[in-house]
């Protein structure tokens, strides 16, 4: 069911709205939902949609501010002729349970200042950090901001 709704929304975004398009979209979405149901990672109900809409408003500004900060950081590093680098591989523990929540956390980490997530195993995330400040208490710098918000969305 959730696959059907997702497919229909994507179809309507791809096409300009008209009734024949809507009819074709419904037919195609039913077939896609029946055939590929097993492999989709998307499951939601209406409560999730409400929470998602609420937290998107909270999440997007934080995310965009972090992304612009990340790019200014990279720009400063690139344009500086001495290239101040202090990189290292670290691992970070996370409290998030769901697969999708961890995926969004990893993607957010990749797009924020100085960090690039490489792999996840269990509750550990492996991260390449461009400027290692401390070995203890890494979570404060890397993942705390997003973890709070994503916990609200997915749990």
């Amino acid at each position: 069911m959730s696959v059907f709704i997702t497919s229909l929304v994507i179809w309507l975004l791809l096409t300009n709205f008209s009734y024949s398009e809507l009819l074709a979209g419904v037919i195609v979405s039913i077939f896609v939902a029946l055939i590929f149901r097993k492999y989709h990672a998307i499951r939601f109900d209406w409560k999730f949609l409400v929470r998602f809409a609420y937290y998107t408003v909270v999440y997007l500004p934080v995310f965009i501010v972090e992304m612009v900060k990340a790019n200014l950081d990279v720009a400063a590093r690139v344009l500086n002729p001495k290239l101040p680098l202090n990189p290292g591989f670290v691992q970070v523990k996370t409290q998030l349970k769901g697969d999708a929540a961890k995926l969004f956390l990893a993607n957010s980490i990749t797009l924020t200042p100085g960090t690039l997530s490489m792999d996840a195993k269990g509750e550990k995330l492996f991260i390449h950090w461009i400027d290692v400040k401390t070995i203890e208490d890494k979570e404060k710098y890397i993942s705390k901001r997003f973890e709070r918000i994503l916990k609200g969305v997915f749990e």
């Binding site: 696959v3 497919s7 896609v32």
Partner: peptide, 24 residues
């Protein structure tokens, strides 16, 4: 990779619907 495995599940409806959109 864990990230690849989960993201494929989310990307799949987008890719399939786009393919069907192309030939319809």
């Amino acid at each position: 990779n864990f990230i690849l495995r989960v993201s494929t599940g989310i990307l799949l409806p987008l890719i399939i619907m786009f393919g069907i959109y192309i030939f319809v």
